[in-house]
Design a protein around this nucleic acid. Structure first.
Length: 142
DNA sequence: GCTGTGCATGACCGC
DNA sequence: CGGTCATGCACAGCC
């Protein structure tokens, strides 16, 4: 778990909630992300995901899928701060292919890229349709 | 037509 | 009121 981070005050609210196994909010997420993207996975769910592996899994962010995320376009919009905090830095719009592993150990490859948007960027994952269909994800799912 | 790509637009929300 | 992001939409290829 993330308690190895010495910056966490053991008496604060986040820690208490984690001890109760009810709500986990990683300290870095609290600092950088809007509350709507805070990971809300429970310790119990996290333990189920990690299974028997020796991996330490640190929740970074969660997103509720929009209709267009889960639709047929196959593109999932990434919240900008989430992408820039936790994904590789990309300087070209074409971005990078990202290989990611789901909780069952299955590998997926998504293209992590961005579009120019006003004077900023919109980050997206392309090629998510196989994953979304395989997991039968719908709008509103996390 | 239809479908995918690349961006534009505008509602919405946090400040 | 400025930035974000869900979705609109024009354009290009293709059938």
């Amino acid at each position: 778990n993330s308690n190895h981070n010495s910056g966490i005050d053991p008496t604060n609210e986040t820690h208490t909630q984690m001890r109760n196994g009810r709500l986990r909010v990683d300290a870095r997420s609290r600092n950088q992300l809007l509350p709507r993207y805070w990971p809300r996975i429970t310790d119990q769910e996290l333990q189920q995901i990690s299974g028997d592996s020796n991996s330490i899994i640190i929740p970074l962010f969660e997103k509720m899928l929009s209709a267009s995320d889960a639709g047929r376009i196959g593109r999932l919009v990434l919240p900008k701060k989430c992408a820039e905090a936790y994904f590789p830095a990309i300087s070209q719009p074409e971005g990078l292919p990202l290989k990611v592993q789901d909780a069952t150990g299955k590998d997926w490859v998504f293209q992590f890229r961005f579009w120019p948007n006003n004077n900023s960027r919109m980050y997206v994952l392309e090629g998510v349709t196989p994953c979304i269909q395989s997991m039968q994800l719908q709008a509103g799912d996390t």
